[in-house]
């Protein structure tokens, strides 16, 4: 449906179409990149993400201190040359802990995203392509999962299972694939009626090959956008659970549990740097993912035209 509307629009602007398409030959990718780069917030987000992900990956080499090394005689020290962002309530370097904590937070975000998107894409593709009973069954499953309030279900599950990193990721992945599934199903419903699908069927291609080899690549645009936004969501969810003491357990640091430990009136009053920096990191990261996601959505949508 999306594509046909776009075609209509293009037909209504024959002049623009002629000048651009005849004037230069461009690949789809270069158009997408150009459109993305025109969005300043998206570029800002991408640069921030590159810095954040890069420094998390390089944490062992960048971090000036052992993130778990405590110096009880230097608790809640203010930011200084030695401790760039100050120290926490056990005298550990907050900067180093942020770097290592970022690894955990980003790891949770990315792995949960890959899991959720994989499940969601598969379910959505099967439901959309086969339709009928398969569709009805899979979509009712989606409805059931969506009907639970997400954060409460998360808290319950994590409280019943003992909190640990792998369980956290699994719970995220198994609860968050529904949006992707609906998205992909919608794409498949329109795409499967196209001529190229008919052509593929005619030459006797198997269903699986048609789904994953032919249709899916065309449906990837919205999935990439949803996936990008999901990473930010997972990082936020992990922080929330860790903040409630149900996430990653100490002494492993994550941005969320660093915030938990700074939960004290006295720390708020005397050591502003302790709650501030993990909070800022969560804010920046999630914001950047959202900016990039918005930028990608515009760049991948054929209806949005380069300025």
């Amino acid at each position: 449906m999306g594509k046909s509307e776009a075609q209509l629009q293009n037909n209504q602007n024959p002049k623009l179409n002629d000048v651009q398409s005849l004037g230069e030959k461009r690949s789809l990718l270069s158009i997408i990149v150009a459109k993305f780069l025109q969005n300043k917030l998206a570029v800002f987000g991408l640069i921030m993400l590159a810095i954040i992900v890069g420094s998390a990956l390089l944490a062992p080499w960048i971090a000036p201190h052992d993130p778990d090394f405590q110096n009880l005689r230097n608790r809640l020290a203010a930011p200084s040359a030695e401790f760039l962002l100050g120290t926490d309530h056990l005298g550990r370097d907050i900067f180093s802990r942020l770097l290592f904590g970022g690894r955990v937070s980003l790891f949770v975000g990315f792995v949960a995203m890959v899991g959720a998107v994989t499940i969601g894409t598969t379910v959505g593709a099967l439901a959309g392509y086969f339709g009928g009973l398969v569709d009805a069954f899979l979509m009712r499953l989606v409805d059931i999962i969506i009907s639970f309030p997400n954060i409460f279900l998360l808290i319950t599950l994590v409280a019943v299972l003992e909190p640990s990193l792998d369980k956290l990721i699994m719970v995220f992945a198994f609860l968050s694939w529904t949006g992707t599934a609906r998205l992909v199903r919608g794409e498949f419903l329109t795409l499967k009626k196209r001529e190229f699908v008919l052509a593929a069927r005619t030459i006797g291609m198997s269903n699986m090959k048609i789904i994953f080899g032919q249709i899916l690549p065309s449906a990837m645009g919205p999935v990439i956008v949803a996936a990008t936004l999901a990473v930010g969501g997972f990082i936020l969810a992990e922080s929330a659970l860790s903040f409630l003491g149900l996430g990653v357990q100490p002494p492993t640091s994550t941005w969320g549990n660093m915030l938990t430990y700074s939960q004290s009136v006295t720390i708020f009053r005397t050591a502003w740097w302790y709650p501030t920096f993990p909070g800022v990191m969560i804010l920046l990261t999630v914001l950047s993912f959202n900016f990039v996601g918005d930028g990608l959505r515009d760049a991948l949508d054929p209806r949005v035209i380069e300025k």
Partner: peptide
């Protein structure tokens, strides 16, 4: 909070003498 921290602090003290501690809550 204090007991949780004591677990984490003990981990570091005992590592000095070659004992591994896993604090749990």
């Amino acid at each position: 909070v204090t007991r949780r921290d004591i677990g984490i602090i003990t981990q570091q003290y005992l590592r000095e003498v070659g004992i591994e501690v896993k604090p749990e809550q």
